[in-house]
Amino acid sequence: MLRRAAEKPDPERHGLRVVHLPFQIHPEIPPGGIEAGPRQGPMYAALEREAAQAGLPLNWPARLPDTRAALAASAWVRQHRPDVSDEFNRRLFAAHFALGEDLGDTAVIDRKAKELDIDLDALRAALADGSALASLTEAEALGARFGVRSTPSWLISGKLVAGLLPPSEFERLAESAMRQSR
């Protein structure tokens, strides 16, 4: 999964279309974030192993930010600049997990948007007037309708698949989806 985040996705590889939708898993995190605490256990070990295998830096931040604005920006960019949406998401991911930047800070969002020539005035206006948040709410409602409760999650041939899976499992699921569609 982390390896896939580092690579430019090839949605046509199996004839499938990948649509990234933002989904806030921890809406209880307040503005300013919360202390994260230790990252221990099998899930964290698997994430660290996958990141190392992919050559990705993984620096657990000390605080978990309120990501609502970043997710709303992601939803807005997906609708208004689909040509850079995946790259915007990768840069937000790297800002948080590699660079330790606070995704609750709008300056971080602005900087990542500016790097991709996203119209900052339009993005800021959408964040201010609530239209970006409405896009996020719509994406989250869609996810909730399909039972999304964690990230990452994928809907493949009507089946919800959640969690970190080995690349071979994604290959198997994609091939199965293609067989079902024939």
Rank of each mutant, 00 (worst) to 15 (best):
L64M: 13
E28A: 10
H96Q: 13
A6D: 10
E48V: 01
A6T: 07
R149L: 11
V18G: 00
P9C: 01
L64D: 07
N89C: 08
R149M: 12
F93W: 15
E138W: 05
S157H: 14
L16P: 00
G41E: 05
L64E: 12
A144P: 03
T106D: 07
L56P: 04
P167T: 15
E101I: 00
L136M: 02
P38V: 15
G32Q: 10
E175P: 02
L136V: 02
F170Q: 07
L71C: 01
E12V: 03
Q180W: 12
D117A: 15
V19N: 01
P166V: 14
R172S: 10
T151W: 11
L2F: 15
N59E: 09
P27R: 08
L56Y: 12
P82G: 04
P9L: 11
L123D: 01
D117R: 15
N59W: 11
A113F: 07
L155W: 10
R17I: 08
R39C: 07
T106K: 07
A45V: 01
G130H: 00
L116M: 01
D102I: 08
L127Q: 07
G147N: 09
L164F: 14
S85W: 05
A51N: 04
A52N: 09
R17K: 11
D66W: 13
P61M: 13
P27Q: 10
P61F: 13
L71N: 03
